[in-house]
Design a protein around this nucleic acid. Structure first.
Lengths: 220, 220
DNA sequence: GTCTATACTGTGATAGAC
DNA sequence: GTCTATCACAGTATAGAC
């Protein structure tokens, strides 16, 4: 692997682990067994690393979020709940790999205007996607009659998607990433459950089934 | 006012405004027009200031959260929804005054074991309080039959209470604190709304009334 | 209690040899 | 592309005069 890419990967790992602000460019160089000067040849210091990391993160997430859920050809199922589940899982996995952007969000947004703009844009994409998911899941109960209700649900889903990794971290610390993501996806989707009335029990039951299937596939 | 207290107030203000990590002990001294040496006479550096700030914040919030909602004699009403509303408003106001503890939570918890322990404890108190609020508000629809549902609701309320100030900041930036808090309280309580069925509309309507009354009282 | 002086530390950054 | 050597600086902390 190229040195430049190794620097990015190592930096992201350290940022996730220790917090972005507690990792210096020299730390990254030390971890990689290269000299600080060498690192500065590839990137203009920590700022350069952060810019590069955020750019690729943004493209990654924004690309997934912007794709209308109906067009997600990579999700090989037509069941609404399962499609939503997979969609959110893929996104949360990408977020987990760069979770320091969320754990240290305020600080990063205050210091880097680019990250500020990008995160706001992502937020708005998340909201749109949440709204689409909720519309689809709640189609049977016809909630579209009350649009402001749908907004409330979408806001709750967006907030959960954005802060779950942080919230979960100090609720149940040190756990397998898969478990964290699983519970996050469930928590997001469960904002729709109460509106399903009698079908809510089925909803939760089906979520468990989907997750069990996914874990099997993952370990196979 | 004593110098020690002025240091604490000024520090909290700067932390809220610029982010805790972007404010040095010298910045606080500069803002107060005192010398850095003078500041170090009163507190053992920035760590000392943070410890003192957190201790008083913790006592403040924990005291309110630990009081069973039924015993809150300072809330001069017996209507469940209004009591909940006032209860949450008071707490969120205290949180707002020290919002940097939440905006920079991960970093502070990583660096200060005391803050880590304290925030976890506060979280667990918030959960308990949320559960009590939900139980009371949902008493008419008898949700107690499904305890895990109640846990889900309490988790959502706890999460909203903890992250609302951060979430709202980059949704609708630069607004009056009262508005931010108002929307936060509404968002927390609205996790109970869908379970109220036909009474949900009344619920939202009553929230608006309570808030209007509160704003009147505040400006009078 | 408050000040000025100063010293120590870690980080960010660069020049120039290999 | 990679290295060593070195610099500038901000933030932290202390000693001692007033």
């Amino acid at each position: 692997m190229k040195t430049a890419q190794r620097i990015l990967d190592t930096a992201a790992g350290l940022f996730n682990e220790r917090g972005e602000r507690n990792v210096s460019a020299s730390d990254v160089a030390l971890e990689l067994d290269i000299s600080p000067g060498n690192l500065y040849y590839h990137f203009k210091g920590k700022d350069g690393i952060l810019s590069a990391l955020f750019l690729s993160f943004y493209r990654d997430i924004a690309g997934m979020l912007a794709t209308p859920i109906a067009d997600t050809d990579f999700l090989e199922t037509s069941a609404p709940l399962e499609r939503s589940w997979l969609f959110l899982t893929v996104i949360m996995e990408a977020m987990y790999a760069h979770r320091f952007f969320y754990l240290n969000m305020t600080d990063l947004m205050q210091r880097y205007p680019d990250i500020d703009r990008g995160m706001r844009r992502l937020m708005s994409l998340k909201r749109r996607a949440s709204r689409a998911l909720a519309s689809e899941l709640l189609a049977p109960v016809d909630i579209t009659a009350q649009p402001q209700r749908l907004d409330h649900i979408a806001d709750s889903m967006t907030m959960t998607l954005s802060y779950w990794l942080s919230f979960d971290q100090w609720m149940t610390p040190s756990e397998h990433p898969q478990q964290v993501i699983h519970r996050g996806v469930l928590q997001i989707l469960s904002h729709c459950a109460p509106y399903l009335g009698d079908q809510a029990a089925d909803f939760y039951h089906e979520c468990e089934l989907i997750n069990a299937r996914l874990l099997d596939a993952g370990s196979a």
